[in-house]
């Protein structure tokens, strides 16, 4: 989801979030692409007013990107592919 984060305007920002665990769960559902429009709208509000929610959102997003982008992705060995094809060709 692309949510542009507001540059912090000090006075209006909540420094403390009363629903941190619930907010975190919601943020994860949203980043996983499984949220309803209503949930996304709600988060958008939070991201304009709640400092801890902004931080949680950034962290969750960063970790998701680490997992998806930075970890080595192996290719299946050619030998294994050949072996599987050889085995199933004997099946019929």
């Amino acid at each position: 989801m692309q949510t542009s984060l507001p540059s912090s305007s000090p006075g209006s920002m909540k420094e403390h979030c009363d629903h941190q665990v619930d907010c975190l769960k919601m943020i994860q559902v949203i980043l996983d692409g499984q949220a309803t429009e209503q949930q996304i709208e709600r988060l958008r509000n939070n991201l304009h007013t709640c400092q801890p929610c902004i931080q949680m959102y950034n962290l969750e997003k960063e970790i998701k990107q680490l997992l998806n982008g930075k970890m080595e992705k192996k290719c299946c060995p050619e030998q294994l592919i050949a072996s599987i094809k050889a085995r199933i060709s004997q099946f019929s």
Partner: peptide, 21 residues
């Protein structure tokens, strides 16, 4: 009594793939 982990996005962004793995 669930908790959130005190960690900032900036603290993990420099981790390399092997560390994440």
């Amino acid at each position: 009594t669930e908790h959130t982990i005190d960690l900032r996005a900036e603290s993990v962004s420099d981790l390399i793939g092997d560390e994440v793995a």
